[in-house]
């Protein structure tokens, strides 16, 4: 083989089917690249995100929970305090992993390492890149969540067999946050703007019926909380781990499906606007 191409060998190559300008059906290449790149990742930084909800569970659920006793869920079930907050923290761990990856990491690749710019000079389309990167962020969220589920099982906080369904649920939650997170990040120009995301996530984490039932709020505040994504995740997962299935779960799932779709559409369009104009 010659080291370099000659036009004579490649000129005969057929053009093949016409590819869509948005999607080459090659998301796998983006995902494989991401997995290969994690080899050089600092795992201590990655793991810190996992421990955060675990520490909350230990301090508030186990420690503070001894003072609280039991709490009533939105379906009227009385559960120990730790079993009340654990599913919420499970949803939070899925959110954290997905958001860290789709904000800080994506921002760096977008603006500093010029990774996406390089990818889009190949036959990859912006949808391949968006889906691949969102999947990688989802994966980090899923890893945190699975780890957290093991912790829950060890402490006996999965109260029903339906807790198994919490696994696909956290995947959905991670997917939603990864997708929306990447879309938002693609519009950001400075690291300071990413700090705003952190600034919004903290109150959402604290106030989304995570540590106490939403009924403590006056009605207008309840509406506000219910408009935010984390509350839907918390309610969905809590229903599954406590074994209280309800029709509202379909609404929660629907909320995330819409969030995923919006995120993918915006991310794809933004990548195209940034690198193919």
């Amino acid at each position: 083989m010659t080291a370099a191409p000659s036009t004579s060998t490649s000129a005969s190559r057929p053009l093949g089917r016409q590819r869509s300008a948005l999607y080459a059906g090659n998301t796998g290449a983006v995902i494989r690249r991401g997995l290969l790149a994690t080899r050089s990742t600092n795992y201590l930084v990655v793991l810190s995100g996992f421990f955060e909800p675990v520490f909350y569970l230990l301090s508030l659920g186990i420690g503070f929970g001894a003072l609280v006793g039991s709490v009533q869920t939105s379906t009227g079930q009385e559960v120990p305090y730790a079993a009340f907050i654990a599913p919420a923290l499970l949803a939070v761990s899925a959110m954290n992993g997905a958001v860290y990856d789709s904000t800080w990491n994506v921002f760096f690749k977008l603006n500093y390492s010029k990774l996406y710019q390089g990818m889009l000079t190949t036959s990859l389309g912006p949808l391949d890149v968006a889906l691949g990167e969102i999947f990688l962020a989802l994966l980090r969220g899923a890893m945190y969540a699975v780890g957290f589920m093991v912790v829950m099982q060890l402490f006996g906080l999965n109260l029903a067999w339906t807790a198994l369904l919490a696994l696909p649920a956290v995947l959905l939650i991670a997917f939603g946050f990864a997708s929306l997170g990447m879309a938002i990040t693609s519009y950001m120009k400075t690291f300071q703007q990413i700090e705003w995301v952190t600034f919004i996530m903290l109150p959402m984490f604290l106030f989304s019926a995570t540590f106490y039932p939403i009924t403590v709020y006056p009605e207008p505040i309840q509406w506000l909380i219910q408009a935010l994504p984390l509350w839907h995740g918390v309610e969905l997962v809590r229903g599954l781990t406590t074994g209280a299935l309800s029709g509202m779960m379909l609404v929660h799932v629907g909320y995330y499906l819409v969030m995923i779709a919006i995120g993918i559409v915006f991310t794809t369009n933004r990548l195209r606007a940034l690198f193919l104009k």
Partner: peptide
């Protein structure tokens, strides 16, 4: 305008600033 990916699949591009994958 109509065949971006088809064209890109047959080009080699060396940009002005190296954009090698630093993580690999």
């Amino acid at each position: 305008n109509d065949h971006g990916p088809d064209i890109r699949s047959q080009l080699g591009v060396v940009p002005q600033q190296d954009n090698l994958d630093q993580e690999l």
